[in-house]
Computed example of a mutant assay.
Amino acid sequence: MILTKMDFLERAHLDRQTLEVWIKEEWLIPTRAEHDLAFSEADLARAKLIRELTEDMGVNPEGVGIVLHLLDQVHGLRRAMAEVLKSIHQRSGSTRGVP
């Protein structure tokens, strides 16, 4: 589901200024729609995480950047591992019955 900027602000419980800071810091990277920004459900989940880090856990802005960078790396590694496993399964399936 794609959210408009206004919908995103409402659902994420954010004000415009905070959103602009988060985009500037590249904590959120929305896509560009015709006349505005467009946000995904993943962006909404990421905003929730940022709020939890800053408000509930007291993580400072530098720490938030580090946490998000590490999280992105973990997700990238998971995608890469899924591709490796898929390739292994495809190869093992195509070689079955071959001595």
Rank of each mutant, 00 (worst) to 15 (best):
M57Q: 06
S40E: 11
A38Q: 10
A38L: 12
H13Y: 14
E41A: 11
G65W: 01
R51N: 11
R51L: 09
G93D: 13
W22H: 07
M6A: 14
D15G: 15
I23V: 15
P99A: 09
D15R: 09
A45C: 11
M1H: 08
D56A: 10
A38T: 11
I50K: 01
V84R: 09
L44S: 06
H69G: 05
L44G: 01
R32V: 15
E10L: 15
L19F: 03
Q90M: 08
Q17T: 06
V64W: 01
T54G: 01
L28M: 08
N60Q: 01
L28D: 04
A47E: 02
H35V: 10
Q17S: 12
T95K: 13
R32T: 15
S92G: 00
L77F: 11
A38S: 13
G65N: 04
L28E: 03
R96K: 12
D43V: 03
R78D: 09
G63F: 07
L3V: 06
L44E: 02
R91E: 15
E10C: 12
R51H: 09
A12Q: 03
L70M: 13
S94V: 14
W27R: 00
G97W: 05
P30H: 02
H75I: 05
T54M: 13
T31P: 00
L70I: 15
D7T: 04
L3K: 03
A33N: 09
Q17N: 06
D56M: 08
T95V: 15
S92Q: 05
R51E: 12
H69W: 05
R46E: 02
M57H: 12
R79A: 12
E41N: 12
A47F: 06
I23R: 09
T54W: 04
G97N: 05
L70N: 03
R91S: 15
I2G: 10
W27H: 01
G65M: 01
E26W: 05
V59K: 02
L44Q: 02
R46F: 05
A12N: 06
I23W: 06
K48E: 09
L14P: 02
N60T: 04
A42N: 14
D56F: 06
I2T: 15
Q90S: 13
E55A: 09
R79G: 03
D15V: 14
K86H: 10
Q90W: 09
E52P: 04
R51Y: 00
I29F: 02
M57G: 01
L53F: 08
L68S: 00
T4H: 09
A33C: 10
E25C: 04
L14A: 00
